[in-house]
Amino acid sequence: MQFSVHTAKTQLSRLIDAALAGEEVVIAKGSKPVVRLVPVAQSGFRLGMCKGRFGPLPDFLEPEPEDMLEAWEGGA
């Protein structure tokens, strides 16, 4: 489907939906095609996707026990 810039301005939402549905959407200046609308590939990455799979995690802001601090400082 090819559309003029004016039509693209007034029908942008509909053209985006068409591109997302897999249709080829081309915008032309006059009769010359200049732009093609294509969907952006979506990433499969999600935050928290491993939540609860590894048991309790350490609290890195919690102070270390005295014996661990001594071991790090070369005392034990």
Rank of each mutant, 00 (worst) to 15 (best):
M1T: 13
M1A: 13
M1V: 13
Q2G: 07
Q2S: 13
Q2C: 08
F3M: 10
S4T: 15
S4W: 10
V5K: 10
V5H: 12
V5G: 04
H6R: 15
H6M: 10
H6W: 09
T7L: 12
A8I: 00
A8Y: 01
A8L: 12
K9M: 15
K9S: 11
K9C: 14
K9D: 09
T10C: 04
Q11R: 15
L12V: 09
R14W: 05
R14F: 01
L15C: 02
L15Y: 01
L15I: 05
I16Y: 01
I16H: 05
I16R: 06
I16T: 06
D17W: 09
D17L: 14
A18Y: 06
A18N: 08
A18D: 12
A18Q: 15
A19E: 06
A19L: 09
A19R: 02
A19W: 08
L20G: 06
L20D: 09
A21K: 09
A21M: 01
G22R: 03
E24W: 09
E24L: 14
E24M: 12
V26T: 14
V26Q: 10
I27V: 15
A28I: 01
A28F: 02
K29H: 14
K29V: 13
K29G: 08
K29D: 14
K29F: 12
G30E: 03
G30L: 00
G30P: 01
S31R: 11
K32C: 03
K32G: 02
P33V: 03
V34M: 15
V34Q: 15
V34C: 13
V34G: 05
V34E: 11
V35Y: 15
V35W: 13
R36A: 03
R36G: 02
L37F: 04
L37I: 15
V38Y: 02
V38D: 06
V38Q: 10
V38M: 08
P39S: 06
P39N: 06
V40P: 00
A41N: 11
A41M: 12
A41W: 05
A41G: 05
A41C: 00
S43F: 07
S43I: 08
G44L: 11
F45T: 07
R46N: 05
L47K: 11
G48K: 05
M49L: 10
C50D: 12
C50N: 13
C50Y: 14
K51W: 10
K51A: 15
K51S: 10
G52W: 01
F54Y: 14
F54G: 02
G55R: 04
P56C: 07
P56A: 11
P56I: 08
P56D: 07
L57M: 13
L57P: 02
L57C: 03
P58W: 05
P58N: 02
D59P: 00
F60K: 03
L61Y: 11
L61Q: 12
E62P: 04
E62D: 11
P63Q: 08
P63V: 04
P63M: 07
E64K: 09
P65S: 08
E66T: 03
D67M: 00
M68D: 07
L69N: 07
A71Q: 05
E73Y: 06
E73D: 09
E73N: 09
G74N: 03
